[in-house]
């Protein structure tokens, strides 16, 4: 934490006038070579209704479920066309009713390598590869209180973007396939797919995601609306009135807005999203606020 504070201080002291380009693993914005943007983000995601399989329900023994996340996310310009993004979240869970104990801790460290492979008159093709590894020894199967699933992941993503050179109007779309490893739980037997597995090894289903974004990006600000879809490629449903489990086929569709202002080396970003449909997932409403610091290399 001390090092982060130090970096923030350095950022505050080096208020240069270069344009800011804070970016994400799902956009076509690149940091120039030898610059770093560090985002410190805080977000909350809450739900009262969830889909138990296809059945939408509430649970009076959970009430409102809240997941809070604080994350540090540096984006690094390795070259003008190759960027590296890292993300490390700390997560807390809690409920407004019932007696399930909230969980907290560092979750999974992820890294994304983004490449502008093709760029012509505002149209770009960007292959992206990502990976994540759990950094905390949190319990993955005390759902919905667990802060993560303990799976190691590898994501392959293809992102297309067209940005109108004069107005900054853009459309971005991507599709990804997410490989997820098996995990180990504390128990030596569990039920999934309507049978008992006599082992502590659990298969977490692979997944895909896709999104489409429509927005405007200018030198000092950006605004967009988006729709995102996440779905496992297989998995089982939550049993009637039972708790979720890492083998569940989780799916969700969400819509939202994202915006950013970054007149100088310091900026702000914000995101709100709402799940419109799902399977084995909470109908969450989420928001995120971030503080951006850009550090420019010489």
């Amino acid at each position: 934490m001390k090092r982060i504070a130090c970096l923030i201080l350095v950022a505050l002291l080096s208020l240069l006038s270069a344009p800011l380009r804070a970016q994400m693993p799902h956009d076509a914005i690149y940091m120039p070579r030898k610059t770093v943007c560090i985002a410190g983000m805080y977000g909350e995601s809450t739900w009262t209704d969830y889909w138990e399989g296809t059945l939408k329900r509430e649970n009076l023994n959970i009430g409102r479920h809240t997941t809070r996340t604080a994350a540090i996310m540096p984006a690094i310009g390795i070259s003008n066309r190759v960027n590296l993004i890292l993300n490390l979240p700390y997560v807390w869970t809690s409920t407004s009713a019932g007696n399930l104990m909230g969980q907290k801790g560092f979750q999974d460290l992820s890294a994304w390598l983004k490449l502008k492979a093709f760029d012509y008159k505002g149209l770009s093709v960007n292959p992206i590869v990502g990976g994540s590894i759990p950094v905390g020894n949190y319990v993955p199967d005390f759902l919905p209180m667990s802060i993560g699933l303990q799976a190691r992941t590898v994501t392959g993503r293809l992102l297309l973007n067209y940005t109108h050179p004069h107005t900054g109007l853009y459309v971005t779309t991507h599709g990804s396939y997410i490989w997820r490893s098996t995990i180990r739980i504390d128990r030596d037997a569990y039920q999934a797919d309507n049978r008992v597995y006599n082992t502590d090894e659990v298969s977490v289903p692979n997944a895909y995601d896709a999104a489409v974004r429509l927005g405007v990006v200018r030198r000092a600000w950006q605004t967009e609306v988006f729709a995102e879809r996440f779905a496992c490629v297989n998995g089982d449903n939550i049993r009637r009135n039972d708790m979720p489990f890492p083998t569940n086929n989780m799916q969700m569709t969400q819509v939202g807005w994202y915006g950013k202002i970054q007149p100088r080396n310091i900026g702000l970003n914000a995101r709100v999203a709402y799940v419109t449909d799902g399977l084995n997932a909470g109908q969450s409403t989420s928001y995120m606020l971030g503080l951006l610091f850009q550090l420019n290399g010489k």
Binding site: L113, G130, S132, I133, S181, T182, Y197
Partner: peptide
Amino acid sequence: ALSVLGLSAVLTSCDKTIEEP
């Protein structure tokens, strides 16, 4: 960066068969 990506790739085995005794 490549070592984080590479490590997770190696550790994320494609074989998802669950071994039981």
